[in-house]
Amino acid sequence: MTRPSFILQPGPPQEPRIVAVEARGRDIRFVLEPGEHLLEAVRRGFADAGFKCGVVELGPAALSPFAYVMPALSKDGANAAFYSDTYRPAGVCRLEAGAMTFGVRDGAPFFHAHGLWREASGKASGGHILPEDTVVAERIEVRAFGIDGAMYEAVPDAETNFKIFGPLAVASVGAKTDRRVIALRLRPNQDFIGALEVTAARFGIRRGRIRGGVGSTIGAKLADGTVVENFATEVFVLHGLIAPGTDGQPKVTLDVGLVDYTGGMARGRVVR
């Protein structure tokens, strides 16, 4: 099967294709306590540091109860792809790696998180973590990045027919910050790395780090030769850097985790 380069969405293309909001931010760490719902634990962690929005590096972590969905084919054509039924594996799930964007949906705290994990049965799996149905099982410290001056808010999107997180410019809440940040949303059917490089050049960023980052991709090709063919694939950023290339322009290196609608999983460096 040849990996497609374009997937027709149910609605008309929206502009701008790269949604970018300049703000300020800071690296933070906080502890997730056992017995807390993951959503509340993350909200509290950001709030204690003075933030209402940010991204989190997930894993390793123990979660139980735990609920998730995987990417799936659309059943009715209302979306280009959709979600599976909800999975609720028994026992403690051990999250190995993941990423989270934290913001608001319908006026309340919410997150969008993807990851890879191992269930108590030993089964390796991955997908989209459900915020309200997942509980922290063991105490763990996580690394995060708080954002002030931008808010990720889930709003209806006419192009994809989903309610999707995107950055909005908001008034500062006065959080302590120490660096510039560009909060992004990339609309469908773009070269992932190319869009990041275009954004870096636009904002004059020669060197930087790519934090968080969750979404969907039309498969991927990795540096070790792995090719994820399926178009309904969830992705999260493990690590990303911006640095000058030989031509002096910003170049991006990006390590990601992936899970497709058949349950196939991969981790590695994206190549174009």
Rank of each mutant, 00 (worst) to 15 (best):
V170D: 04
V136N: 02
I140T: 10
R29D: 11
G45Q: 02
V256R: 02
P16K: 09
R267F: 03
T217H: 01
V252D: 03
K163A: 07
D85V: 08
P12I: 14
G91I: 03
G208F: 00
L196D: 04
I164M: 14
S172G: 05
G127R: 03
T101L: 10
G225T: 02
G240E: 00
L196E: 06
A97N: 09
L241D: 10
K176Y: 02
V142R: 06
R267V: 14
V21L: 09
F203Q: 03
V136K: 05
L241R: 13
E36L: 07
F192N: 02
P131G: 10
I210L: 04
A154R: 04
G77W: 05
V56R: 12
V256M: 07
R118Y: 00
A158R: 14
R267K: 13
V227A: 10
D133Q: 13
R211P: 02
R207Y: 01
R118W: 00
L238Y: 00
L73S: 14
A201C: 03
A137Y: 05
G45M: 04
L63G: 07
G248H: 10
P131D: 06
P71E: 08
C53H: 09
I28V: 15
P12M: 15
V170T: 05
E33C: 12
G45Y: 00
V227W: 00
E15N: 15
N230S: 09
F162T: 06
S121G: 12
A90D: 12
A266H: 07
V270Q: 03
R139L: 10
I242R: 02
F51Q: 13
I140K: 08
A120E: 15
E153Q: 07
P65Q: 14
T253I: 15
S216P: 01
F192Q: 06
G245C: 08
L254I: 14
V21T: 09
Y87F: 06
G126W: 00
P250M: 04
L73F: 06
L38F: 05
D27S: 15
R94S: 03
E22M: 15
G194R: 05
G166H: 07
P89F: 00
K52E: 10
T134V: 06
A78F: 11
F82H: 08
R44G: 06
S125H: 01
A97H: 02
T86W: 01
Y87C: 12
M100C: 15
S64G: 15
D157R: 14
P131E: 01
P89W: 01
A20L: 08
E229Y: 05
D133G: 09
R139D: 11
D85F: 02
E153T: 08
A223E: 04
I205Y: 00
I164S: 11
P109W: 08
H112D: 13
T199N: 05
W117S: 07
N79S: 11
F203R: 04
P4F: 09
T217D: 01
P156K: 06
G225K: 01
A144Y: 00
G174S: 12
G194W: 01
F46H: 05
E33K: 15
P13W: 10
L8P: 01
